[in-house]
Design a protein around this nucleic acid. Structure first.
Lengths: 129, 129
DNA sequence: ACTATGCATAACGTACCCTTTATCTAATTC
DNA sequence: GAATTAGATAAAGGGTACGTTATGCATAGT
């Protein structure tokens, strides 16, 4: 039979369940293919204009502006205004700092020694992929 | 004939506007504070049970299951079933591979050599943060 | 002053993220 | 076989990420 039908759901009662951290925000900036393309473009030049990035990534100019805002918030890029043009460049120092922060978090050991494998392979170019 | 006609809003065309890449999916896995907490917990032990992770992160069991699914898809963790328990561990090799992939992308130069600064400071523990 | 340009923002719409509670499945235990 | 336990999945819903076009605003050029 089917004695008791269950009551309807109520959904999530509250908001803001898990506050973002600086590191999670940084990774949010990296977690989109278009933004990775932006980074790739910025890696091959010191500074790139916004409209050039939009054309390179094949997205509209407002969309690019929005992506750049996220990348700025994530501390992935820095922007500089010159007249009516805005130039973007990678914030390599901040990126490095966050990567090191993540590495430290991932390699943290309770009592054992830190595994040198990861660090070594990260640089030695061990065949992965 | 209808000179000032404004085209109707269509919103997002359809699915697949920007297909995710393997690297962007990997960063998606890292782009959440709870999942970073999971990684932090997994870093201090070889293997951790799902329910223990849920308790540690103070989230419900279904939500933990969902986060673990994302982490598995992102190639951040691997899971192993033993009876009715599931043990999780970090996939350090995959994480390392993706980090190296990102470093390569970020350090790519048109013709110059890769700057050793970043790589060096990443390991030497230069004061950042 | 007027026009053109480069970027930002607003308005709009769809899909997905993220969370909950309830239910389901599989394995262990009695 | 029945009860218990560990995870996974379903259902529901609020919030937001992400894409578009239209508009605004400041600067450069004429």
């Amino acid at each position: 039979m089917d004695p008791g039908r269950r009551p309807p759901r109520l959904g999530t009662p509250r908001r803001l369940v898990t506050p973002p951290t600086e590191l999670s925000v940084h990774f949010e900036g990296l977690a989109h293919p278009t933004r990775l393309t932006i980074i790739e473009r910025l890696a091959s030049a010191a500074e790139v204009r916004v409209s050039e990035l939009a054309e390179f990534c094949k997205v509209s100019q407002p969309r690019m502006s929005w992506h750049l805002r996220i990348l700025r918030r994530s501390q992935v890029i820095r922007t500089r205004r010159e007249g009516r043009e805005v130039f973007c460049r990678l914030d390599r120092e901040a990126i490095t700092a966050h990567m090191r922060s993540f590495m430290r978090l991932m390699l943290a050991k309770g009592d054992g020694e830190p595994s040198p494998d990861l660090t070594a392979s990260l640089l030695s170019g061990e065949a992965v992929q």
